Simulated scan of single mutants.
Amino acid sequence: MTVLQKYFGKEILRAVLFVLLAFLALFAFFDLINELPAVGRGGYQIQHAFFYIALGLPGYTYELMPIAALIGSIYVLAQMASNSEFTIMRVSGLSTRQAGFMLAKIGLIFVLITFLFGEVISPLTAERAERLKQQAQGTSSKEFRSGLWTKDQIRDDSGAMIGSRFVNVGELLPNGRLKDVKLYEFDSELRLTSMVTASTADFQGDRRWLLSDVATTRFALTVFNLAVLPDATSGIATTTAPTRELMSDITPDILSVTFADPDRMSAFDLATYTRHLAENRQVTERYDIAFWKKIIYPFAVFVMMALALPFAYLHARSGGVSLKIFMGIMIGVSFKLINSLFSHVGLLNTWPPLATAIAPSLLFLAGAVVALWWVERH
């Protein structure tokens, strides 16, 4: 078994690497075509485009690894079937369970690689790519014409929540600085207590922001009760200051999440942002689904390799190697589409996030079990 394990491992690793490199080259070519119109805009030159595309490849590696594992495994197993190698292995005592166990041990390598790219490499390179593009083009992050909106909590010195704050940011610069900041602060009864404007805000660490060119307008609680205070303007006071320190749970990382694709974020970042949304009583379903997909997706490699195993039982008369590879490509594309479809349908129908994330893998795993049962019977 050790000899067979090494033989399977060497052939499958080589085939999967080849398929993955071919996919990466194809996607890099398409990305280059998409980036060419942006070349020459500001300081964004062709070398920046190449670097931007290269930084996006780890994200594609994460997304394509299960499909590459499927196609590479099908190629190797189909070749063995066409050369009668797998038939000889079965006659020598190799059972379906043993073959599946060998594939699972090989698949564990791909699972670990997928986790590494999804949790460590891809989030860092994706963030670096966006900063590179913004710096080269001289642009900044904007979500709406009115800027970026987020919600925060106001806490006292003991950490207890005493109110809420709505934050409006005109621009988020690549270095994490905020421009054109507006804060609308409310008490626990949701009554507006103050409005703060600042030209810039810089994060100092430990929940502290330093606001510059600050204007603070405070509202007395009687302002909104004209029966008590007919002249409402007398309950409004405005002060200015060159700087002011602000304590907030919001960090530049949390703000940058707003502009990031959840599928390109790490599970740790998704969990942090989801917790922030939940604390502020905001909708978290989209990020909950993305979090569970991030946890479960690497294990789809096992499902894809299980789907590849039945192809070892199909002889040449059941179709050539090229036909089987084409079938593998269609299965991989179907898995990708169904995985994305379940995410949107689950979000629309408020399905449990874990069930939404795991359902496509379970569906294709059931298909693999049925396919193995069929080839063994026939």
Rank of each mutant, 00 (worst) to 15 (best):
H276I: 00
F51H: 10
L116A: 14
G40V: 00
E119N: 10
E245C: 02
Y44C: 11
P123K: 00
Q134W: 03
S73F: 01
L124W: 13
H315S: 12
P262K: 06
L365M: 12
V301H: 07
L210Q: 15
F110G: 00
S340Y: 09
L13N: 04
V181E: 01
V333I: 15
S95H: 06
I74E: 01
L124F: 13
D261E: 11
L270R: 00
R145M: 12
T233M: 10
L365R: 02
R165W: 01
F144C: 05
F117I: 02
S194G: 05
V3H: 07
A215W: 04
P230W: 06
R317I: 01
E127M: 14
A232Y: 10
D263F: 09
R207K: 14
Y184M: 07
R286A: 10
T274N: 03
G328S: 07
R275A: 11
A78N: 02
A28N: 01
G40Q: 03
M195R: 14
L20F: 06
L32H: 12
A49Y: 01
K105Y: 02
E171N: 15
G328L: 08
R14P: 07
L309I: 00
W374C: 05
V223P: 11
A316Q: 12
F51S: 15
T258E: 11
A232R: 14
P66D: 06
G367D: 10
Q134K: 13
